[in-house]
Simulated scan of single mutants.
Amino acid sequence: MRRALYAGTFDPVTNGHLDVLRRACDLFDEVIMAAAPNQDKKPLLSVEVRAKLIEENLAEFPNARAEILSGLTVDFARKMGAQTIIRGLRAISDFEFEFQLAQMNRDLAPEVETIFLMPKKEHFYTSSSLVKAIATYDPVRTTKFVPPNSLAALKEALGS
């Protein structure tokens, strides 16, 4: 079985994340979309809420499942039996960090390959950070960037 791990903070999950997931599901027998705690990014939503938001969006992805990532991504990939790590690339500015991360992961686990998938062009500029910034002032304007459950979670977390 070809299994891939698509890990990220997903704070919140966006339509761009789901587009990358769709592409990964076309390539692999199973894709695990794992929400990472990532306290360095100071997430607005708890990792449990983020995993639940992912789970609620998997109806159209029968070969995907949601998990909460623990430990290093490469170690989690091994634990889950994933041979590949999926990383989304939006713009050239993402590449340097993602390249360094992929090389470090290759050094730590040479048997786990990293592949980069790009979302549709309408999602190139969408990021969870930008969505949260917009939602702080006007959550309704985030409607085209996030699935409905992410919008509801943002509104609740922001008290609007």
Rank of each mutant, 00 (worst) to 15 (best):
V140G: 07
K132T: 11
M104K: 01
S127Y: 08
L89T: 09
T84Y: 14
E113G: 00
T114L: 11
V140H: 08
I92R: 12
Q103L: 14
A133H: 12
V140M: 02
G88F: 05
V112D: 03
A82K: 09
V112S: 02
A133W: 12
V112N: 04
K120V: 07
V140S: 11
P139N: 05
E122N: 12
M104Y: 02
F124R: 07
F124W: 15
V140T: 06
E111I: 04
S93G: 10
P139C: 04
N105Y: 09
L130T: 08
P119H: 06
P139F: 14
I92E: 12
R141S: 14
S128H: 10
L117V: 08
L101N: 04
E96V: 06
I86M: 01
N105A: 00
T142V: 15
I134A: 09
I86C: 02
L130R: 06
E122A: 06
L89G: 10
E113I: 01
T136D: 09
H123Y: 15
A82P: 05
D107V: 09
A82T: 01
Q103H: 13
P119C: 09
E111D: 12
I115L: 03
Q100N: 11
K120F: 06
Y125N: 11
T126Y: 11
V131L: 13
I86T: 03
K132L: 11
S129G: 08
E98C: 11
D107C: 14
P110E: 06
D138C: 15
Y137T: 00
V140I: 04
A91C: 07
L117A: 13
I115P: 00
A82L: 02
R87H: 00
E96K: 12
E111K: 01
P139K: 05
E98Y: 03
E122T: 07
A135Y: 05
R141E: 08
R141A: 10
K120W: 02
L108Y: 00
L89I: 15
I86S: 00
I86E: 00
Y137S: 12
I92N: 11
D107E: 11
E113H: 04
V112R: 09
I92W: 10
L117D: 02
L108H: 02
A109T: 02
V131G: 10
R106C: 01
G88D: 02
F124T: 12
F116V: 10
E98A: 05
E113P: 00
K120E: 15
V131D: 09
F97R: 05
R90K: 13
D138K: 14
F116M: 03
L130N: 08
K120Y: 04
